[in-house]
Design a protein around this nucleic acid. Structure first.
Lengths: 113, 113
DNA sequence: ACAAGATACCTTGCATCGCAAGGTATCTTT
DNA sequence: AAAGATACCTTGCGATGCAAGGTATCTTGT
């Protein structure tokens, strides 16, 4: 998957996943790797950023199948930020689609509906 | 507009605009700045990259209202690349929306359908 | 003629972010 | 005791967008 496209969306994706249920970094990687393809080298600095912005809080939970897990929980500010990001994302996509649509006439040759 | 979100999409946008009609960098900035908000410091290195990839070719045209314009024209390879980028973009957006959709239940409070 | 402003080109340096590669510690299984 | 999975983390690199600054051309006002 194209690396550059992900820039700025992964934090939103992580917040969206956390909006469902608390999780820990290692699990977030496996959850998001089905489709989004995110790696550990990405997630840990990212989680640190989310924490620095106070969008998530953390707590430790001992595991019976390995070392303790650092769980992340969405804060109220994080929930609000997620809503903002969603909006910005939708506006951004709309804008790109708009630019792409202007090309519609020159595109009738491909395998498109 | 969020800088990070644009990463990897501006080249596609430029190619899409050029698929309609040849243009020059300065004009591309003003065309895309309505909505996408792209700056000169971005466009010139970007055009150089597109040219290095042989996705565009150039030709000079004298202007009656200023210095000569360096026009960019989409090549066949550029047209194919644009099609590929479109596909990757659509797949990427679908994937992000998919992650965001999983959050739907936790989102019934906002102004959403 | 000359100053000012628009048009049009370009480069440099910075900040951000995703990622591969590498490292550590814990727990289970063999 | 060794091996593998789980789970944490950091370092350094590459790619990209942008502000800031620079140059040259052409038109317009005075």
């Amino acid at each position: 998957m194209k690396t550059q496209l992900k820039k700025g969306t992964l934090d939103m994706c992580v917040l969206a996943v956390l909006a469902q249920a608390d999780s820990y970094a290692y699990e977030l990687v496996s959850k998001l790797s089905q489709g989004m393809d995110i790696s550990e080298g990405t997630i840990y600095p990212l989680m640190r950023r989310l924490q620095n912005e106070s969008w998530v809080s953390t707590y430790l939970v001992e595991s019976s199948s390995g070392p303790s897990r650092k769980y992340y929980k969405l804060t109220e500010a994080g929930r609000r930020e997620l809503a903002t990001m969603r909006q910005e994302w939708q506006e951004f996509v709309a804008e790109v689609e708009n630019v792409l649509r202007s090309d519609a006439a020159a595109q009738t040759e491909g395998a498109q509906q």
